[in-house]
């Protein structure tokens, strides 16, 4: 791809198309900077306004992924009143790859429910931070994980801006990362939607090509502007995610981090990564040079000595 672009670019400039060349370069620079996902990758659009918090998706996920039985059954709605450390609401864990939380919005009168799981970023932070390459972004859009190579450094958990990956700390022999893989092995690979999407009785989630979902989301906002805030969460957040959300209330009121920015996480790391080849190339010459400078007196003395001894030889 890049080669062809470059050839086209050269041809254009050779032909004297200065304008074409200018646009060519900007376009190229842009495409090199941000990766907007595989062209036909799939995604899910979650419409929070439709969710009633029945937890059917949680149950479907548990069954599909063969997860252990939950502490409280899936029809027990008292989980919505649970608070964990720091007064925070429930989160994904090694036993649950997706959770629904309830948010009480005083001015709305009725609570808003929010389903939460791995968002399957276009440029996943977990993937870019993994030093054994355990993560893969598949062309279908899922971010999957290979437990066979995981060393257990847990940098992906540090890197994930959504606090998604969980770790099976309880296992002494084989602790691994546990997170939603968009049902890749059993469903997505075969073109089927994830189990939670299919199980939802309210059709909260729409499964489809990511670019189509953005169109659908925008259309929904346009046709019913009083129903939604004018934003698709996940369209641009941290470089775009496969799972996207529509909400009737501002996203920060229903547990979304709205300060993540649109840069993928790796862009914050690039400042450091850029200096690595520089140090590797320049340091050896620079510091051997310092060594030579620091020892120039010795070298001069040696030179003088050899000159002297040669002179002496000459005298003889």
């Amino acid at each position: 791809m890049k080669k062809i672009d470059r050839r086209k670019f050269l041809k254009g400039s050779l032909a004297g198309g200065v304008v074409a060349a200018a646009t060519g370069t900007t376009k190229k620079a842009h495409s090199a900077y941000s990766f907007e996902g595989y062209p036909d990758s799939m995604g899910v659009l979650v419409d929070l306004t439709k969710c009633v918090g029945c937890r059917t998706c949680e149950a479907a996920c548990n069954k599909e992924q063969g997860l252990p039985a939950p502490d409280k059954p899936f029809d027990d709605m008292s989980v919505y009143d649970e608070h964990r450390h720091g007064g925070l609401k429930r989160r994904t864990s090694e036993k649950a790859y997706t959770v629904v939380n309830r948010y009480d919005i005083p001015e709305k009168g009725e609570p808003v429910y929010r389903k939460f799981q791995c968002n399957h970023c276009n440029e996943p932070a977990c993937l870019t931070s993994c030093f054994v390459n355990a993560y893969t972004k598949t062309k279908e859009g899922a971010v999957i994980y290979d437990p066979k190579v995981c060393v257990g450094c847990r940098t992906c958990m540090i890197a994930c801006p959504f606090y998604v990956p969980a770790y099976s700390y309880s296992s002494p022999i084989d602790p691994v990362i546990k997170k939603c893989i968009m049902c890749y092995d059993t469903r997505l690979k075969f073109g089927k939607p994830p189990a939670c999407v299919e199980a939802c009785p309210r059709e909260v989630m729409t499964f489809g090509k990511r670019e189509d979902l953005i169109k659908i989301g925008n259309q929904k906002i346009r046709t019913t502007p009083d129903r939604y805030v004018n934003h698709i969460y996940g369209e641009h957040e941290v470089g775009g995610t496969a799972w996207m959300y529509l909400s009737s209330v501002p996203f920060d009121q229903v547990g979304f981090d709205t300060k993540l920015g649109t840069q993928p996480i790796i862009s914050y790391v690039k400042d450091f990564l850029a200096i690595v080849p520089m140090v590797l190339c320049i340091w050896p010459a620079l510091f051997t040079g310092f060594h030579l400078l620091a020892h120039r007196k010795n070298a001069r003395q040696q030179d003088n000595q050899t000159v002297k001894s040669k002179k002496e030889e000459g005298h003889e």
Partner: peptide, 10 residues
């Protein structure tokens, strides 16, 4: 065994 050379931890 499995190299992730783009990672800082690598």
């Amino acid at each position: 065994v499995s190299l992730g050379p783009a990672a800082v931890l690598f």
